[in-house]
Design a protein around this nucleic acid. Sequence first.
DNA 1: TGAGGGCATTGATTTGCATCAATGCCGGGG
DNA 2: CCCCGGCATTGATGCAAATCAATGCCCTCA
Lengths: 250, 250
Amino acid sequence: MRIADPLQDSCAGAATRDCRHGLATNGCEDCKVRLFSVCAALEAPELEELDRISQAREVPARTTLFEQSALAGSVFNVTEGVVRLYKSLPDGRRQIVGFALPGDFLGLALQDRYGVTAEAVTAVAVCRFARPAFLAYVDDKPHLLRRLHEFAGHELSLAQEQMLLLGRRTAEEKIAAFLLNMQARYARIGTVSVTVPLPMSRQDIADYLGLTIETVSRTLTRLAREKAVLIVPDGVRLLDLERLKLAGAS
Amino acid sequence: MRIADPLQDSCAGAATRDCRHGLATNGCEDCKVRLFSVCAALEAPELEELDRISQAREVPARTTLFEQSALAGSVFNVTEGVVRLYKSLPDGRRQIVGFALPGDFLGLALQDRYGVTAEAVTAVAVCRFARPAFLAYVDDKPHLLRRLHEFAGHELSLAQEQMLLLGRRTAEEKIAAFLLNMQARYARIGTVSVTVPLPMSRQDIADYLGLTIETVSRTLTRLAREKAVLIVPDGVRLLDLERLKLAGAS
DNA sequence: TGAGGGCATTGATTTGCATCAATGCCGGGG
DNA sequence: CCCCGGCATTGATGCAAATCAATGCCCTCA
């Protein structure tokens, strides 16, 4: 099966990264570069152990990786594709709390149950760790623990930023912030381009920003009409960054 | 100075808790019970070291403990009172991302800058740790690191729940969920009562739930009119829990 | 090739909450 | 005692975004 590659756009040459477990940036045969990985320096014996407890897995779009309130049996590192994380209300209302891109960890909260559901938006490749093995591996490595903790802290910061967005920003500000944020995230994993890939549906974007599909669509077309963006297949080209930053600034 | 005590309400006898640093539940002279503290078992020598790097502090209402994007120099544990944590937009819009009650930690994200501003809502007592000392103390104690990490994971879960609330719930659902949540939190620190203390202003509640003061006020009076709650000075008495849970359930 | 389903766009209309505005309550200070 | 300022409540009105509804554009598949 061919894996959809969100990195391919305008970055074909440099996009050949396939770190299997996302935990190292050096010493690992499989790893090229992963700037935002959890641990920047693991030694060879540790890496071998890591390889033993990790398991690469590829799944097609719309696959559920784990479900909210299920027993948290695995920790995942996304290596290819996009995953949506969401919570649902009994009546079907949905809030996407984040999109995981290559390099992101899932289930790191280290609680006994998952707090969200994780679904592949595109075809996805992940590296799976059995939780007990992962915990055992991590437990006597303070530098790794520290790093994981910082990672969690960063996640929390992002969540708080998203609360500000959901609670206090207008539709246009939400869209602008979302586009700029996606561009920044793709840039970090190697896709530097004014064209931001948007592999998720309008419904996903709406459920992430606390809007409806119609409002997302209208706001995007308005931004396009005003020459702030250009809507292209599966993405958006950012034209007037100043205009967007004006709306989306933190 | 007399410290305002959110625990006093209907719990006068059991409310004599004054854990100075919030990091232990046994072996510590100063500690009575702190069920949700970070570490349930620290040994005597470790506690002495902890005491050396901690510093009790009492501040009046409206004091700023730290400001968004300031260098994170301290970690705090709240021992008395209520603290609001918020982010602001340049034009003054504000989103409160959480209220810290006794036992809660502030600045645990372990990033070099604070992501939010922390202000005392009531008079507040905190235990302050210098960050470098705290990090040094914690660094070679894997069990503590683990516990801190779990703590951060829990925070993240709460943040995600709040995103669902901000993005997808109606005004009435937001208020109901808020009241039930506050009751649960006070119950955990010893105040078991149908009367939930609300030491923060309507503006604070509005900024927490992504509403306006007027909507908060109207929704509360509607709930009161419908006999779901009874509004009392500095708080709300919950009358019809079923009705509230119907609206506020996760 | 054309029926049918999924998704996005666009328009018309409604509505939940915000905004604007007035009043009331209370506590502190002269 | 009364004035004042801060906060909460309540009512009238406005508006941004939701809802309802129609259309179009791919796809896929028979």
